[in-house]
Structure formats: C-alpha cells, structure tokens
Design a protein around this nucleic acid. Structure first.
Length: 539
DNA sequence: CGTACGATGATAAGAAGT
DNA sequence: ACTTCTTATCATCGTACG
C-alpha cells in the first residue's frame, strides 16, 4: 500500500504518517489524510491565514485541528518549515525557479518569484498582482503586508462576548464579525462572486475587464477538465475546491444569460476562454418567449421575466390552490398589495407560472427539459417516475451554458474526443458536446443512479453515436487499476467533466447543509483523485 | 407521490456617523 | 460628500416521513 501511494507521487513520509494515523483499513480515508497533509505542507504561513479562517466553524477547522495534532513535528520545526527560509519551497515556487533558470520568465512571473523568494505566499502575491499588475515589487510588498495585518486582526478577534470593551463600546450589537477592509484597496480573503455573474464572459453582454488568464503549468491540458458546483455555498467551500484544482479561479456564471431560467453556478476548468461560441438554435430567453400561452394570464403586477433556479422538488397542489382562492376572494382587478406580495413570494420560491385566470402551476417536466437545453422527452419513459424526472433534471447542467464553455474544444479536436464523465446524471455534458457537433469517440460515464444511466444509454443509442459508451456506478471504487486499464484500451482522455454532489452545499437543504465534508458533497475529493489518476496514467 | 420542514449568504437600500 | 453600520429582501442542483 505504501508503494501504491508513493507511486502516485506522494512523499513516503506523508504516506507513512497517514497510515499510522488512520490504520491500514480504508485506502480512501488514507488518501484523504495524505492530501490534507500535503496541502498543509505546500502551504506557507500566509496561505494558512488566507484560507483557514480560525474564526469560522466548518471544514477549515479540521485542517487546523490536524495541525495541532501533528505531534511528530515540534512547533518550532513546523514554524521553520512553513516560514519558507530553510529550503522549503512550494511546487509553484520551484516551478518559477526552473523557469528562471531557463531564462523564460515573464514580467509577472519575475515579480512573483521575487516575492516568493522573500517568503511571501504565492497566493497573496498573485492576488496583489491581479489588482495592481503594474505595481513595482516594493509596492506589492506593502500591499501584501497591509492585507496580512488586516487579516490577522480579523482572524484572531475573539467572539463578541469576549471582545475588548473598546470594540464593544462602538454600540455594535451585530454578531457578525467585523469585515476589515483597507481603504479602497480591498484584498479579498475569500473568493467573491462577480456581479453581474458572467464569469469570463457571456454572449449577450459586454465581456468583463479582464479576459486573459494564465494557468499554472501543472494545470494545463490535455487532459482538459471541467468541474461544476453551486455558486452559493457555505463560506470557504470554493476556496477549498479551488485549492485542490490547481488554484484555478472559479468562473461563476448565471445561466439566466443563456436561457429563461437562472442557475448560479461556479465552474473550474482549464479550457481556453477565447473564441467561445454559443449553441444554436438559441433557446428562449425570457419567460414570455418560453411560455407564449402564459402571456394571456400573466398579471401586470408580476414583473418576472426569468425563472428562478430549477430545483429537484416542485410546489404542492395545496399551495397553488391556496393562491387561487386568495386571488379569487379579492375579486376583479388587481388584488390588494398584501396578496400580491404573498403570491409573488410563493411564485418566486416555487418557480410557478400562470396557466389560467388566478391559476399558477409548477413547470411540467418537458418544460424543464426545454429550459435546461435537453431534447424534449429526454428523461421521459423507461420506467422513470415523474418525481424522479424532476429530481434528475434539477440536478443537471444547463446545457447552453456548459456548451458555451466547451465550444472551444471543437477546433482543438476535429476528430472527436474521449470523455470521462463523472457524476454524469442525465448526461448534460454529453448532450452539450453532441449539440456542438463535437464527435464523441468514447465516453466513460460514472453515475450512481440506474435510472440516469438508462436515460444516457437510451439517448446514446437514439443519436446514432459511432463510439462506445462505457458506464460505471461508483466513483469511489474507480481506482488506479481501472483508469490504467481503460486508458490502455481506448487511449488517453481528452476531457474530464463533472459536477460533484451539491446537496450538502445547497441553500435549500434544511437538514444536512454540512459543507464540503458532508456525506455526498465530499465526493468532490474523488473528482480530484480521479482527475489526478487520469493525468498520472497519461501515455 | 404529497406535504411538511429554516438557514445561510449576497446584495441593496437606508440610517447614522465623520 | 463620504464611510460605516444596520436592516430588509431575496434566492437556494433538498430531506424526511407517511
């Protein structure tokens, strides 16, 4: 087992430590431990304070607990290691050094290296450079220093009831932690969502200021990868995800810029972002275009022109009935403002459309298919229940959005692609590639639900694919041997695509919104693990 | 299949302070 | 006029139980 993990590129010391702590039983938890340790090892001190906020509860705490549990490193030893001035250097730092040796360093990389040599965290340096690309190194040092001080103050402030009097005397009753910001020059301590949420650009709007990005060498394709999850997660989740996926900045996009329904999602990928093109035909862009028949019943006081995010459950009949009777009681003409507010609140919450006088209703499954960019009846029949159709659709990609991002592959792979699709669901990525006219050579699809696998299989056969579709049901048991065997059979993967479970991250979950360490959402680590294996066994 | 079940975080607007 | 703090509004790839 030691050989197995060392073969994956981990230091033997880390492997031994992880096995020691975990026991020899479960390879997956051992891997998780190793990953935790190696993440820590690669984190200079500044990065620790950037990403692991000791004030917040949640997954980041685990990293810190692990830190304090590490009895084999004395505190001094640990401090020395993390300080970065006794020979320890991060991978990225080493990479910059080797670039410098070969004389091929850009202006930006030169500054980064200078800062790294002085012991600053590369992440902080990059953040500062991001905002002030033109700033000389001296200024950057000031910026980073100021940001660190602000953060430390922020981080180590005790809870309100323990706060020193002079802070409480400000009259602040808020339980919220004070958010320190430098005047005007804000350095974000966590990933922030763009407003408008258009990522690196959408077809229907002016592109944002910055349209170029450079990826770290170890992140560059092939293989290309595309990862997706909900944008509005508990705090720190996207920081963790990004840290595992080569520190690539997530692209947050709302599908309301592609279709008639909103869908706020974050995407991390290493695809080029130039020369994207949208799917044709373009989908309906407003509620009115998508549901022309509803126009007749749409009251003037309902201002919506986009549906909200499509979820996995729909409104009850009781609710639509309550709305109907409330409206009928108020007679002809516009209802009182209080009724309007109630109806609008429910319509937004449950994504209702007008289907008759005073009548609202949830979307039909085929309407959801259309809004999400799937062919009509994609999920229909084959033994799937109506409820399960809603569930599968609610868990899927918005095809037009994903296709826009994947469109750059068309010119790069004129002869087609081999795709590894994790958490495939009803095949959003496959449908997107197919509709883009990108030939699918072989698709390896891993999906837990049999009903979903059947849907993809049936779509595959109906669309006259020439390649082969291979499916598996469990990501956790998709191990190195299997990756090696499949690559040996069908050749390298060109694209690894998938969105890991969101149910422990999503806002609508009342019961188990446990964050990235939740039962299902922690399967993200398997996405990372398998992506790593695909790179490792690349021929 | 129907019907219960809140919490978190982003954002904007307003209030209060400088 | 500008900053900082407070309050209100809104959206949200869901789960459990019968």
């Amino acid at each position: 087992m030691i050989g197995h993990f060392v073969g994956m590129g981990f230091a033997e010391k880390l492997v031994l430590k992880a096995i020691d702590e975990n026991g020899e039983g479960d390879p997956d938890s051992i891997l998780n431990l190793i990953l935790t340790f190696s993440t820590l090892e690669e984190s200079p001190p500044q990065q620790l304070s950037t990403n692991s906020d000791p004030c917040s509860s949640g997954n980041n705490e685990n990293f810190l607990n692990d830190l304090s549990d590490m009895d084999s490193w004395s505190e001094d030893e640990l401090e020395d290691r993390l300080k970065g001035n006794d020979g320890y250097k991060s991978e990225k730092h080493k990479m910059l050094l080797s670039l410098a040796a070969s004389g091929s360093l850009s202006e930006r990389e030169r500054k980064l290296l200078d800062l790294a040599d002085m012991g600053y965290a590369l992440e902080d340096a990059e953040l500062a450079l991001e905002r002030w690309p033109e700033a000389p190194v001296d200024d950057l040092i000031e910026i980073i220093g100021a940001a660190q001080m602000a953060r430390e103050e922020d981080c180590y402030l005790p809870e309100d009831d323990l706060k020193p009097k002079h802070i409480l005397s400000g009259g602040s009753k808020s339980k919220k932690r004070k958010h320190f910001e430098m005047k005007k020059n804000v350095i974000e301590e966590t990933i922030r969502l763009p407003n408008p949420m258009i990522g690196f650009g959408v077809p229907s709007m002016q592109p944002p200021e910055r349209v170029h990005r450079s990826l770290p060498l170890e992140a560059r394709g092939p293989p290309y990868f595309y990862y997706e999850n909900v944008a509005l997660t508990p705090k720190g989740v996207w920081d963790t995800i990004s840290r595992f996926l080569y520190d690539i900045e997530p692209e947050f996009v709302d599908s309301k810029f592609f279709s008639a329904c909103a869908r706020k999602r974050g995407y991390i990928h290493n695809l080029p972002i130039e020369n994207r093109f949208p799917l044709v035909p373009l989908p309906p862009f407003t509620i009115q275009q998508a549901f022309p028949l509803s126009r007749r019943w749409w009251p003037s006081w309902d201002p919506r022109d986009k549906m909200n995010c499509i979820q996995t459950a729909i409104a009850s009949a009781k609710l639509t009935e309550r709305i109907r009777t409330a409206l009928e009681r108020s007679g002809e003409g516009d209802p009182p403002e209080a009724i309007q507010r109630y109806v609008m609140e429910q319509c937004r919450k449950w994504n209702l459309v007008w289907v008759g006088r005073n009548k609202v209703a949830p979307l039909e499954p085929d309407e959801v298919e259309m809004l999400l960019g799937f062919p009509k009846n994609h999920t229909r029949g084959g033994g799937i229940s109506r409820t399960d159709r809603y569930k599968s659709l609610g868990n899927s990609f918005q095809v037009d959005t994903v296709a826009y991002h994947l469109s750059v592959l068309k010119d790069m792979f004129p002869h087609g692609v081999n795709v590894l699709s994790l958490f495939s669901g009803i095949g959003g990525a496959e449908v997107a590639l197919h509709r883009l006219g990108i030939k699918l050579k072989n698709v390896v699809s891993i999906e837990k639900s049999k009903a979903n696998r059947d849907i993809v299989r049936s779509w595959w056969e109906q669309t006259n694919q020439t390649g082969s579709l291979i499916d598996f049901d469990d990501v956790t048991s998709f191990d190195a041997a299997r990756v090696e065997q499949i690559i040996g059979t069908i050749g390298n993967f060109d694209l690894v695509v998938g969105g890991s479970p969101c149910n422990n991250l999503a806002g609508s979950n009342r019961v188990s919104r446990d964050g990235l360490e939740g039962k299902e959402s922690s399967l993200f680590y398997d996405y990372f693990r398998i992506l790593d294996l695909v790179k490792l066994y690349r021929q």
